[in-house]
Amino acid sequence: MSDIAIFFLHGLAYAGLLFLVSSGLTLVFGMMSVLNFAHASFYMLGAYFAYWLLQITGNFWLALLISPLMLLVIGALVERFLLRKVHVLGHVHELLLTFGLAYIIDEAVKLIWGTNPHAIIISGFLAHTVNIMGVTYPVYRLFVFGVSMALGLFMWLILFKTRIGIIVRAAVEDSPMVGSLGINVPLVFMGVFSVGAALSGLAGVTAGPLLSVDPGMAGAILVDAFVVIVVGGMGSLGGAVLASFIIGELQSFGVLLFPDFSLALIYMLMAVVLVIRPEGLFGEKQ
């Protein structure tokens, strides 16, 4: 019984991480119709920045704050000086650009920090365990889940309950119209893209203590995040929440029940969704 509880909690923590990664990805895709292949590389950068900041300051909370801000700046620069330039050439070139960027970041990380894995050690109450549902469980994993819940709620509030959200969604629907109403549409897109990058940075910092910080971490999360947005429906925040939960738990219980085929389960889920509902659970028909 307590085994099941532990695996359920593990699943929740991983679901939380998946949502942190896929929320930024799906935000950018939903708003700009750009699938950022470099998203997982931004996530990896977030983790490495946190590792570096921890070495300097020794304060995890500071890393949690500053690393996403660094990614925010990087995201803004990438949008302004790279993505915007190829926008006129069409989607294929945008995808190629982000794909090339991912390639460069992955190589640059190896060059700067080497190929050995690093660990982010946390201290304070986050490093403790807590008794929950009759089992002793690390606080940090619950913290990951909590952060993702808070973020999801926050994004929902911003997008659907505030003026900023209305402007952003309108800019997506009809950018010439919104532009003629005096809204700086390119700035809106830059904002969306850099917020997406910052979210990936947040995900990277959060993942740091959970997983190891190494050059393979981008590739490891990228496919899972892709599966999340395919299953949930590309560009749908609600879909990302549900799909993160399903895949997190599937991954966790898959390891428990079929240790050799846990990966296959996820792909089977994706294949089933593709056959039955190619646009994803919450997606719009093409």
Partner: peptide
Amino acid sequence: RVKGTPFALLTLAFNAL
């Protein structure tokens, strides 16, 4: 079954598979 960007994404996922 899908086109455009979702197709690009899925090809990558299948390559990983």
